[in-house]
Design a protein around this nucleic acid. Sequence first.
DNA 1: GCCAATTGTTGTCGTCAACAACAATCTTTC
DNA 2: GAAAGATTGTTGTTGACGACAACAATTGGC
Lengths: 168, 168
Amino acid sequence: MPPTAARADTRHGPRKRAGNGAVPRSDADGVGLDALVGHAGYAVRRFQIWIFQDFIKTLGEVDIRPTQYSVLTVIGANPGLSQMAVAKRLGIERARLVHLLDSLEQRKLVKRIKSKEDRRSHALHLTAQGETALEKFKRLAAEHERHVEAKIGKENRAQLLRILSGFT
Amino acid sequence: MPPTAARADTRHGPRKRAGNGAVPRSDADGVGLDALVGHAGYAVRRFQIWIFQDFIKTLGEVDIRPTQYSVLTVIGANPGLSQMAVAKRLGIERARLVHLLDSLEQRKLVKRIKSKEDRRSHALHLTAQGETALEKFKRLAAEHERHVEAKIGKENRAQLLRILSGFT
DNA sequence: GCCAATTGTTGTCGTCAACAACAATCTTTC
DNA sequence: GAAAGATTGTTGTTGACGACAACAATTGGC
């Protein structure tokens, strides 16, 4: 968020401090965030909203959302996985994956093949159409990643990936 | 990601590569993430899920969720703000803030006071009960923040806040 | 004074996490 | 080998959340 000229805000009452003598942090609108500054979760939430919106917009022409993209890449890199394995790997519930796969299967990008070894489970594969489509998705995702670099800087993006590598 | 011994996974079909000749990255389950590794959005999403779950658990005894906490701290640091100002500052919709405030007002933590200057808007204040409650919430939130430090390291957390400071 | 904009509110829609229940199917155990 | 328990995919519900659209009351520009 670039700094902007201060405008009149809609505050009604007088500015008052909570109790300690610290100077309140304020943004361009004059609204202080107080304890929120210094909370990793708040910064991460705001960043995640921005990054997802850019991803959705950048891959808007092919109508692929972040979760769909993650499912496709995992299946593409590991053909034959069961739904349970994909769900566990991506940290999504198997109940949620059912709907995701329903959608992707309708679009002829993925197919569920009944497993011979375990007749409860399905082996997941990309269709031929899904393979070529995924190549395009990856190009668009790379473009999105360049937007991230442009936003926070190449060095910072690399550091971010390093810091959070334990969560992937 | 440290290399780990591969275990038997639930894959049904044979491992196959997409198209390029790269070696697939794999986790402890032997399930490769392929293109997902190197995507900032994926790492951030996983981290955000972890951090929110820890926040919710750490503040579970007082039943305060991250968004509620952010609303309370902003009002506490800027008494008299209108709903519009709070919503804009936190990046939430004013329609969503209505329900959040309904809940917080029922719990006697916040009060809406009809403004004299602009009779469309409400001046938001913490109740006396809300002030003391927020102090406790802040202590618990600080405890949560120590969990984050323990998870990713003190240095990394500081770098993260620096990198993402533009989004708060 | 009139028209446009703003504020709070209500409502709908879609995404997503968290559960719970269920049938079909494996696996363990006796 | 049969009974008991666990797993897989599926369906459904609940609640938090973002995005939109409409509305009445009120304000401000002109």
